[in-house]
Write a protein that binds this DNA or RNA. Sequence first.
RNA 1: GCCGAUGUAGCUCAGUGGUAGAGCGCUUCCUUGGUAAGGAAGAGGUCACGAGUUCAAUCCUCGUCAUUGGCUCCA
Length: 646
Amino acid sequence: MINITLPDSSVRQYEAGVTALDIARSISEGLARNVLSAKIDDEVWDATRAIRRDARVQLLTWNDTEGKATMWHSSAHLMAEAIEQLHPGVKFGIGPDIENGFYYDIDPGEKVITEADLVEIEKKMLELAKEKQVYQRTEVTKQEALKHFTEKGDEYKLELISELEDGTITFYKSGTFTDLCRGPHLPDTGFIKAVKLTSIAGAYWRGDEKRKQLTRIYGITFPKAKELEDYLILLEEAKKRDHRKLGKELELFTFSQKVGAGLPLWLPKGAELRERLEQYLKKVQKEAGYMPVITPHIGNVNLYKTSGHFDKYGADSFRPITTPVEGEAFFLKPMNCPHHCEIFSSKPHSYKDLPIRYAEFGTVYRYEQSGELHGLTRVRGFTQDDAHIFCTPDQIKSEFKAVIKIIMRIFKALDFKDFITQISLRDPNQPEKYIGSTENWEKAENAIREVAAEEGLNAIAVEGEAAFYGPKMDFMVRDALGRKWQLGTIQVDYNLPERFDLTYIGSDNEKHRPVMIHRAPFGSMERFVAVLIEHCAGKFPLWLAPEQVIILPISEKYQNYAEKVSQFLKNSDIRALIDDRSEKTGRKIRDAELRKIPFMLVVGEKEEAENAVSVRKQGSGDLGTFSLEAFATMINDEVKKLQENV
RNA sequence: GCCGAUGUAGCUCAGUGGUAGAGCGCUUCCUUGGUAAGGAAGAGGUCACGAGUUCAAUCCUCGUCAUUGGCUCCA
């Protein structure tokens, strides 16, 4: 007998060789029907795999992330089986579960799989699922594994097997499909009740752009048809928040082929919104001791040779601008830091001057690959809310913390709660990607780790995500469709000060090297506004809304009074406009609601007589009648509250 | 940059080898209306751009550009 400890700490005894499914059955049939897999100690196993030792067992169902993962991983196998039956000879790469579903990378040979094929594959999957094919796990030797896939002629699987150690290799077979796989899997395919193959895309084998591009098919499955329906509705809802759609509808920004791909044009309302964000940050930065600087949009190529940007990115940048002078060339600036280094160099500094904080809303230009452009989140010309802090080594941590404080203040003011804090480190396997000494890198990385720990940030460390000159702390937020974007960033840099030979005079009257902190709380105005639009679904906080109030006269007779209200609000620093169309009030209200204008003021005979307005709040309806003064006070108080909500 | 898809009126989209349609928006007129769509008329398109096939191309073929789902990249 073995002892099985359940999550509630109760211990039950079973025969050795018992399966998680048996355990579930011994608790209740209903539970057994829902068990997808099980966590045995800290490893997720098939629910049908024999347990031969004492263990902690947690049964996993659709309600568990790992349960879903099991479902989706098994679904990838099911899809592969369907594809193999419909298109014999297809070769398979990898087919993992992902955050929302699964994919399989396949090499269809001569055939091109298109979206039209997906419907057929879905149908086949459901057919096979109904057969309740059992997922059978077998342990195989490396030799057997190699033999199997040599016979099948699947070079991708052979490559994967060649990297595995003998004795750890398992196959899973379900129906007619056998795959190299670590598992775990569902007991059988019958759990898969609803299937949607969502998209098809090219994906390089092993993520290497020099290797063959396979066809990747993404899909998602559910244990109930209703859940699939709900998921699809959710996706539709998410699309409505897409900043590209809202940006157009709310007239915030646009693009023009004539201007060029990836070069955003801010429309008046978008510019209004952005300027308010900039003014807000300028105020915060002034309080925090930053000094404004302004630098040009181009810089001599030599500047970027010194900084290292030319070597690193020169080949993939906009071509240099040449001049009538032989050999002279300028670059569109891709970064503000080299310019700021030169500002620092413009005069000698004492340790007493440090830290020095230069801030600039600096517009930079980067030649992003054409396939990378995406709305406002990935563009070729954008404005960073950049600043560079030049400090002594022992000021790093306090300066770093002060920056975190600014970022948190902004995120809080805009109600960004779901962000990810990431420590972006070197890839230790690719030292050639970075400049500077190992010693400096370690110092910088340690400083960031220490700050993260001391500030109690729940940060995840990711290797290979650092900038080429230094490690970063990045603040990431997801867009409406779940894609992660980096917003705020703080970077510790020992390298540029060295390359620019920056110095300050210490108390010992010797020259010392300052450390540089690069930081941008918004990241870029473009990307930040994009994420902000999606975050609030276009319903901006009152202080940012390009149009705060719309006045709706009941009829033309009250046009004069509407003008008077408008003038009063403008004098009270409130952004108001009048809907003077010859339309009924219901229509004006509907249009204002759709334009997401925070407040609507209905004015007619009654309001004019009382010098009042009837207030309607976007999304929540009629608030009743207010005197003009009371309304203005209410708006101004709310704006003030929102801005100071920190 | 790579693989796939898409590009028709300001917007959302339908459509056809014989040079085009709807709804919304816009303009004008009627209507002067109290909390999510009042009525009528009208204007508006080189069907992304360039070649090719054809008697004839918005439609078929090729190329370019842009958008888009991913991959790769992201100072």
